[in-house]
Write a protein that binds this DNA or RNA. Structure first.
Length: 584
DNA sequence: GCCGTTTTCGGCCCGACTGTTTTCAGTCG
C-alpha cells in the first residue's frame, strides 16, 4: 500500500474507534499518524520501514509502526478488518448528520437498534428518538432535518466560489461603525481548494449590531445558531458561515485560532505549553495559576499583541503564512528557521495554457491578447485543443498551422504589449502517442500534453501512457496530471511519483492547473517535487478572458506547496522564456 | 496510542453553543 492509502486506513480506524466510544486521545493518535504519513515521501516511508526506524518519527510509536508496516507489506490489517466487522457501516454515515456525534449515534444504535440512515429517519418520524435520555423534541427535529438536508448542504464548496461570497461580506463588515477589524479565517484564508464553511472574525466592543447585520444579510437563508458572540447562518447556495465577534484586544488571537487547522492549533498550543504558557482564542497566558485561559485573559494576564505576527514572536517561532497552517510540520520548521519568500501573484509575468474560440474558448485570440495586456503580462500562451478532443472543437493540423500564422501576424502588428506564444493542448492518445506528429509539434512555440479520454485505464496503462508523452522532446509541459475535477470527478488512476520522476529526468514542466475546479497537480506534491528539480507552470486553463484571473487560485495552491518564484516557469521574463523554448 | 531535562505512568488544547438539564454532556471547530 502507498502512504496515502495507509493514511486513509488510519483515518478510517479513528472514525470507527470514535463510534466504539474509545479514548479520544487514542483516536487523535491515529489521526496524527495519518498526518505524519501524508508529510512523508513514499520512498522515505519505505526506507524507514526497511530500517525499522518508523517509530523514531514523532507521532508514531510502536503500535502504529507495526500497523503501518503490516499495511505496507500485506495491504491488509487484521485489527482493521475486525474493527470494521464489529460496526454497522450505516453508523459511519450518520456522522455526516449535523449535531450527531459518536456518543449520540451509539445511544441511538444501542437503545433503538437503528443502524441505517433510513432507520434513523423513521425513528425520528415515529418520535422514538425524542424519548431517549439526553434527546428531546428539538434534537429529533434537528436530526430529521439534517438527514433531509444532507445532500443539499453537506457538501464542500470550491474555494473560488466561497471567496466570491466572502469578499463582499468582509468589506461590508469593515464598513460598520462598530467594527474595528474584520477578516475571513478558516480554510478560506488558508487557501484550501475546497472549504466546508466560512469563518468571519470581527473585532468590536459592541457585538449586537454586528450580529444583527450579519444575520440579516439578504443572502442568508437560515440562521442556525445565534449567541452573543457567535452566530451561524446558511446562505442560499448551501454554504454555511460563522461570525465571531471578539473584543478588539483579542482579535489577533481569535484570527489565528480560527485560521489554523485543528492539527495546527494543537501543535501551537503544545508549543505554548512547553514554554509555560497556555494559548487559546482569548490570549496567551501563564499556564500556572488559578483559572482557565479565558478567565486569566479576562483578568488581564494575557500577553498583549496587536497583530497576528507578534504571536509567532512570542512563541519563539518564525512567521508561518496562513497557507501553511495545516498541521503538517510547519511549527517544527518555524522553530528552527525562517521560511523563504514564497511565490506571490505579482511574481507572474504571463501564463500558458489558454483557449480561444478556435476550440472551446469564449473569447477570440485578439480579445485574450487584450485581456493579458490589461493585466500587464509580458506574454500569453495560447493552447487550444487538438483534433482528438472533437467534443471541444479541437483543431486539426491545418487549423493549428493557420493559428500559428495568425499569432505571428498579431505579434508583428504590435497592437498589444503582450507577446503571444503559439502552442497546443495536444491530446495524449490512449497509448501515449500524441495527437499531432512531431513535424507539426516542431512548428509550435510550446506544447501542453493532456489526457482527455479513456480515464478508466489501469494505473499501469495510464502511468505508461503519460510517461511516454512526458518523454517526447516536443512536449514542454504536462497538463492537469490527474484529471480530477473537484467535487465532481475523481482523478484517474496514475502513479504520480513515477510521472514526476520522468518529468524531472526529461526536463518536462508539470503544470499546476489553476482552474478552481482542478488545482492539479495537487499542492501536497509540490514542495518535495520542486526540491528534486521539477519545474512548475501555473496555468489558468482560461476559456474566457476572466478565466485568466484564475491564476490567483493557482498561487494559493503553489504557496501551500511551498513553491518559490524560481520554481515557477511563468515568473520568468519574456526573453528568458523565449530562450528556454528556443532551446528545446 | 503517544510521549517524557517533572520519563515508563498519567497526562494528553480549549472554548462556544445547544438542548437537555437544574449543573452538564455532546458536538463542533
Amino acid at each position: 500500500m502507498t502512504k496515502n492509502e495507509i493514511a486513509e486506513v488510519l483515518e478510517e480506524i479513528a472514525v470507527l474507534l470514535e463510534l466504539k466510544g474509545e479514548n479520544p486521545f487514542k483516536i487523535r493518535a491515529y489521526n496524527g499518524g495519518a498526518r505524519v504519513l501524508e508529510s512523508l515521501e513514499q520512498d522515505e516511508l519505505e526506507r524507514l520501514i526497511a530500517d525499522e526506524k518508523l517509530d523514531s518519527i514523532k507521532g508514531i510509536g510502536t503500535a502504529l509502526a507495526q500497523k503501518i508496516g503490516e499495511l505496507h507489506t500485506t495491504g491488509q490489517l487484521d485489527f482493521f478488518e475486525k474493527l470494521k466487522a464489529s460496526i454497522a457501516p450505516g453508523l459511519v454515515e450518520m456522522l455526516d448528520v449535523p449535531g450527531l456525534g459518536a456518543k449520540k449515534i451509539k445511544a441511538i444504535h444501542e437503545k433503538l437498534g437503528v443502524d441505517m440512515m433510513a432507520g434513523l429517519a423513521q425513528a425520528c418520524a415515529d418520535g422514538r428518538v425524542a424519548g431517549l435520555a439526553g434527546f428531546g423534541a428539538k434534537s429529533q427535529e434537528k436530526i430529521a432535518e439534517g438527514i433531509r438536508n444532507r445532500e443539499a448542504y453537506g457538501k464542500r464548496h470550491l474555494w473560488w466560489k466561497a471567496n466570491e461570497v466572502a469578499r463582499p461580506i468582509v468589506a461590508g463588515l469593515r464598513e460598520l461603525a462598530e467594527v474595528e477589524r474584520a477578516e475571513a479565517a478558516g480554510s478560506l484564508r488558508r487557501g484550501m481548494e475546497t472549504v466546508g464553511d466560512v469563518d468571519f472574525i470581527v473585532g468590536s466592543s459592541t457585538p449586537g449590531p454586528v450580529m444583527a447585520w450579519f444575520c440579516g444579510l439578504p443572502e442568508v437563508k437560515e440562521v442556525t445558531a445565534r449567541g452573543e458572540t457567535k452566530s451561524s447562518v446558511r446562505f442560499g447556495s448551501g454554504l454555511q458561515a460563522d461570525l465571531r465577534v471578539v473584543p478588539p484586544a483579542q482579535f489577533a488571537f481569535a484570527l489565528h485560532h480560527f485560521t489554523g487547522s485543528k492539527d495546527h492549533n494543537v501543535a501551537m498550543r503544545q508549543r505554548a505549553l512547553e514554554r509555560g504558557q497556555s494559548l487559546s482564542e482569548w490570549g496567551l497566558v501563564p499556564a500556572e495559576g488559578d483559572g482557565m485561559a479565558k478567565e486569566k485573559a479576562e483578568r488581564g494576564e494575557s500577553v498583549i499583541i496587536t497583530d497576528e505576527a507578534e504571536l509567532w514572536e512570542q512563541l519563539g517561532l518564525a512567521w508561518v503564512p496562513p497557507a501553511l497552517r495545516e498541521g503538517m510540520g510547519e511549527i517544527e520548521v518555524a522553530a528552527s528557521t525562517q521560511f523563504p519568500r514564497f511565490i506571490e501573484a505579482t511574481d507572474l509575468r504571463g501564463a500558458f495554457h489558454n483557449h480561444t474560440t478556435a476550440s472551446d474558448g469564449r473569447n477570440t485570440l485578439a480579445e485574450m491578447a487584450a485581456a493579458a495586456s490589461e493585466r500587464g503580462w509580458e506574454y500569453l500562451g495560447i493552447a487550444d485543443h487538438s483534433k482528438a478532443s472533437f467534443q471541444a472543437n479541437g483543431l486539426d493540423e491545418e487549423r493549428v498551422l493557420k493559428q500559428v500564422a495568425d499569432i505571428r501576424k498579431l505579434n508583428a502588428g504590435g497592437a498589444y504589449s503582450t507577446h503571444i506564444f503559439s502552442g497546443s493542448e495536444v491530446d495524449i492518445l490512449t497509448d501515449g502517442r500524441l495527437d499531432f506528429s512531431d513535424e507539426i509539434l516542431a512548428q509550435l512555440d510550446y506544447v501542453v500534453a493532456s489526457v482527455h479520454n479513456a480515464f478508466s485505464q489501469s494505473e499501469e496503462e495510464m502511468t505508461q501512457r503519460i510517461i511516454r508523452a512526458v518523454e517526447n522532446p516536443h512536449v514542454t509541459m504536462l497538463g492537469h496530471p490527474t484529471g480530477r475535477v473537484l467535487l465532481r470527478r475523481e482523478a484517474y488512476k496514475v502513479d504520480l511519483a513515477k510521472v514526476i520522476d520522468a518529468a524531472i529526468a526529461n526536463e518536462t514542466i508539470i503544470e499546476l492547473n489553476a482552474s478552481p475546479w482542478r488545482l492539479d497537480l495537487d499542492w501536497r506534491w509540490w514542495q518535495k517535487a520542486a526540491e528534486r528539480g521539477l519545474l512548475c507552470s501555473i496555468n489558468p486553463d482560461a476559456h474566457e478572458c476572466a478565466g485568466l484571473d484564475h491564476v490567483a487560485a493557482g498561487i494559493n495552491a503553489a504557496r501551500k506547496g511551498r513553491l518559490e518564484a524560481h520554481n515557477v516557469f511563468n515568473t520568468r521574463a519574456l526573453a528568458d522564456v523565449q530562450a528556454y523554448l528556443g532551446k528545446r
